[in-house]
Design a protein around this nucleic acid. Structure first.
Length: 468
RNA sequence: GGCGGCGUAGCCAAGUGGCCAAGGCGGAGGUCUGCAAAACCUCUAUUCAGCGGUUCGAAUCCGCUCGCCGCCUCCA
């Protein structure tokens, strides 16, 4: 079965066919590293993380590129304000981003290029655009002339005349057309600068992605992704630059994730309604965030809410508790039995959901249904070897499917209770056996005081680390 | 103003022409339990913002109305 993806370019779901059979090449726009990333950035990264994982699961070879924008006005401004080099500031936030991604279980990309390390490629691309007549120079700046590229506006559905009428485009008399955008900007004193045929300067806002995508994925590749707020102008400009140069489609499929809103507005630095990933991770389980993100289709907006994340945490526990129980009570039992027919359909439905434009909410629904069936087996597992075998193999299956979505990335510690806790649990068990309830309850309090909880089940005590 | 999208149970959220409208959270019963807690099971929308139309048949297609969001400016 093939994957169907919604393509922003055509506004339709299309069958996904890679340019090179068996190999998927993906470029996703990363972050501008001038500050800590927030949960909106995290959503975007997680969405493309899951897409990338899913293609691998389907047996494709995947080359996944996610860039860092490390030269930009805000970086420069902030670095100057702090009295550090722009490169120092951006490197700090590159590291922070990587730590944040690791904390929420988002895998690193295969290539994570930085703009500043690809200046020569950008200069070369701009030179070609000038030579081919798509760009012109003014006082050390280079602009892309959009009138020379008729498809401009196709991705975003913009009408060029209306764009002009919008009149919010910055007016610069030197430009031939107000809608032309900068490929190269001459540097002012105190700004980072690189040599170029047009004098010292720095790249414009969009050229880095064109140059880096071309370098690592070729002139034409499969999927280009990013937040939907990048459709215009960023991706529109990328298409113009790249396709004007190569004459070939930059990417065949354009995928865009919906925004995270907060207080009914897009979460963004400029509005001040943000929550950093760092802040989030202090309070919540990464898999709770993953469920929060994947519980809504990637193209739809999500309203941020603490309460919603806590709900997600409770929901994800439903899934992981089963894994925990199997590892605690029946590890080693059962062996390598095959999956009962009743359980085979779940993988089929799970895959069908994800094949349909990565419908993670539906795929999660399948996992929850699977968990119900497994819990029913688990009811009899302590007395019924067949049920026990089914639970064990079924939980293995569920674990595999959850991993496709990136859950359980940081490992699950079923027997993670330290020895002293285990000792208390055992002691409590003995107390309960002699009906010494007072002592048993004391021990339970003691265990809880140390950050663990103990619950009594027919199969034995279930010990779990209590989340904050 | 232009472009794109959304409005489904108390809350969140799939479903986009035809079996009982997934799933999660919450709630109500029940089972288990020394107790408590947790867990598990069952139930929880004759109805899909409103109105009109197309159709044998619509939450799903078309039109209008109302409400909301994103983009049009740096932005995941």
């Amino acid at each position: 079965m093939s994957v169907r993806v919604y393509n922003t370019l055509t506004r339709k779901k299309e069958e996904f066919v890679p340019l090179t059979p068996g190999h998927v090449r993906i470029y996703a726009c990363g972050v501008t590293v001038y500050d800590l990333s927030h949960v909106g950035h995290a959503r975007s990264a997680m969405v493309f993380d899951v897409i990338q994982r899913y293609f691998r699961f389907k047996g494709y070879r995947v080359t996944f590129v996610r860039n860092f924008t490390d030269v930009e006005d805000k970086i420069i401004r902030r670095a100057n304000a702090e009295g550090v080099l722009a490169a120092e500031l951006s490197e700090r936030y590159v590291q922070a981003f990587r730590e944040d991604m690791a904390a929420i279980g988002v895998a690193p990309a295969d290539v994570e290029p930085k703009a500043t390390e690809h200046i020569p490629e950008m200069v070369a691309l701009i030179e070609r655009l000038v030579t081919k007549g798509f760009a012109y120079t003014v006082d050390g700046d280079v602009y892309f002339e959009i009138r020379r590229f008729p498809p401009y506006g196709r991705l975003s559905g913009k009408n060029l005349d209306e764009l002009l009428a919008g009149a919010r485009v910055e007016v610069d008399e030197r430009k031939r057309d107000p809608r032309d955008f900068a490929l190269w900007k001459s540097s002012k004193p105190g700004e980072p600068a690189w040599p170029s045929p047009w004098g010292p300067g720095r790249p414009g806002w969009h050229i880095e992605c064109s140059a880096m995508a071309m370098k690592y994925l070729g002139e034409s590749f499969d999927i280009h992704g990013g937040g939907e707020d990048l459709i215009f102008p960023h991706h529109e400009c990328e298409i113009a630059q790249s396709e004007a140069d190569t004459g070939r489609p930059l990417a065949r499929y354009w995928l865009h994730n919906g925004m995270v809103t907060f207080r009914a507005e897009k979460m963004s630095k400029s509005l001040g309604n943000i929550l950093s990933i760092r802040e989030f991770v202090k309070r919540h389980d990464p898999d709770a965030f993953r469920l929060f993100v994947l519980g809504t289709h990637y193209r739809h907006p999500i309203e941020w809410s603490e309460e919603r994340v806590q709900e997600s945490a409770r929901a994800v526990e439903r899934l992981t508790r089963l894994i925990h129980d199997v590892q605690t009570f029946w590890s080693g039992a059962g062996g390598d039995s095959t999956l009962p027919d009743e359980l085979r359909t779940f993988r089929t439905r799970f895959v069908a959901a994800l094949d349909d434009d990565f419908n993670t909410p539906q795929a999660l629904g399948v996992l929850f249904e699977l968990s119900h069936v497994l819990y029913e087996y688990a009811e009899h597992a302590s007395v019924d070897a067949g049920a026990r075998a089914a639970v064990i193999v079924g939980v293995q299956e569920m674990t595999n499917l959850m991993r496709v979505l990136g859950f359980l990335e940081r490992g699950y510690e079923p027997s993670g209770a330290p020895p002293e806790i285990e000792r208390l649990v055992q002691e409590r068990g003995q107390a309960r056996a002699r009906h010494d309830w007072r002592h048993a309850d004391q021990l339970r309090d003691e265990i809880q005081g140390r950050g663990f909880s103990v619950e009594d089940t027919p199969s034995g005590p279930r010990v779990t680390r209590r989340s904050a």
